[in-house]
Design a protein around this nucleic acid. Sequence first.
RNA 1: UGGGGCGUCGUCAAGCGGUAAGACACAAGCCUUUGGAGCUUGCAUUCCCAGGUUCGAAUCCUGGCGCCCCAGCCA
Length: 574
Amino acid sequence: MNDKPKPDSEAAAPPAEAVDFVRAIVAEDLKNNKFVGRVHTRFPPEPNGHLHIGHAKAIYLNYLIAVENDGLFNLRFDDTNPTKEETQFADAIQKDIRWLGVDWADRLFWASDYFETLYEYAVKLIKDGKAYVDDLSAEEIREYRGTLTEPGKNSPYRERSVEENLDLFARMRKGEFPDGSKVLRAKIDMASGNLNMRDPVMYRIMHAKHHRTGDAWCIYPMYDWAHGQSDSIEGITHSNCSLEFEDHRPLYDWFLDQLGIHHPRQTEFARLNLNYTIMSKRKLRRLVEEGYVRGWDDPRLPTLSGLRRRGYSPESIRNFCERVGVAKRNSVVDIALLEHTLREDLNKHSARVMAVLRPLKVIIDNYPEGQVEQLDAVNNPEDPSAGTRKVPFSRELYIERDDFREDPPKKFFRLAPGREVRLRYAYFITCEAVVKDEQTGEITALHCSYDPATKGGDSPDGRKVKATLHWVSAEHALDAEVRLYDKLFIKEDPDDVPEGQDFIANLNPDSLSVLTSGKIEPSVKGAAPGNRYQFERQGYFCVDPDSTENALVFNRTVGLRDTWAKIQKQQKRK
RNA sequence: UGGGGCGUCGUCAAGCGGUAAGACACAAGCCUUUGGAGCUUGCAUUCCCAGGUUCGAAUCCUGGCGCCCCAGCCA
């Protein structure tokens, strides 16, 4: 053995994993000891709506950066607008974030916790001649602001004395003035090319009840005034936010510098967009409020509560977010990637079960009447430790209507008159006769024969069969309602509409179809809402909360990859 | 001649002067008691365009072009 020490050169180090630019910045700050080795991130939602998968990207980015660097992660609600925010939203948001597996420990904060401090900061700016009370109306302020290409002009109230500003601001707080009559503004530069620097409003008067502070205040800080200081107060080191705040950064820098307080580093990244869906809070709200979907947790929505109800696992969402990456370029991710990470996770973890969605009765003529056999079935071929279960087999069964064709097209391997197929874990059967309704011509049942020698699904003579079908014993089957979901929109870009229309026009009329005569093997009896299964050969399904003890309701989370459907599509094209 | 940002495969996305990672999608094949899963192979002679610097450029320089964001007392 040669135990000569290997030269421990840095050049021999393996190439660093490609990290996104936000993590690279954090790493660089750590290396330069910019925040004395600390990493502290946060996710700052406004409690005025529900979280969606786009938020999951931001949540995981911030949370994981903290975890990866032995840092801390805060949840802070930016509740600076009492007219829009509600406790119910704050509760739902916390539930969703917890579901993602993200832990903020005891660091739940509210911007409203800092109202007093923020007020004191504002007083300091006034004393320094950096802020003033303005009596201009909202419309006048807009006019004075100028335009994108023309500079603004100073308010006539801009040069009030410090004493007068102090007095007026104190009286604003006391409630002496009506809503909209006065605002506090930062005194910066009305000619700045960056509109955010043209004397932005810091406080407005709102005689409104706040969900946490009640009637304690009648002036409320603007987001731009509250946000950066809130991060600073919490000792946040890395304030990661979305692209549109890029040109607010100079303003946040200005406030922090004037105040001389802890200065986090802000980095902006592109928010997540997905095709065939919408992420805008306003549009989601419209779908819910106008009844296009059943609620915020409708399984067709990209909301976290919707995805949860649909059967998505948090792991699949996290994997998705990691594969999407983080960058500055606006982009639209293909929903197929989300479905891929979903299937990838569900495949490994879901118990397999046989369920017939659109039943077709099958009678095995040569199987003894009244006989029942308990056959062994594998619970999860991806996970031997999941074990096996017994599935009852009897003379009358159900198979999928789609698995039989009286006149089978090319490449259709399933059951057809005279054809032999395997019933999974059971026997080979051959279709002997087709029973039809005389009136409608609809196929009502199949008469088949079985080969007793093929029990379990293997043929002792080595005879091959081209298809394996799932099935369920008629007498033992559980009834179930099954809800199938498809894309909510028919266009990749829901906003791609003719002149005069909006995204509502692109709603997919077939995004939900309800099957009421599903038949499921008895082993799922007693399944609880949220339980996930793979219905063999069909897809992943989960128990919906609408289920009752005797009436199961399933949601199709996502279908299995369907090669036959692809073949059919190709054949149609020819 | 307002300010800020971005342009690398159909879609995301690495790359940081040394000769285009990876993933999804797609295609072909193998395997299969899920037409599932898995496995193999293919898939940007070229990085928005045009010049320039250099032995060498997606990377540096110059000039164009295109896309996104900003004129809430919303966040």
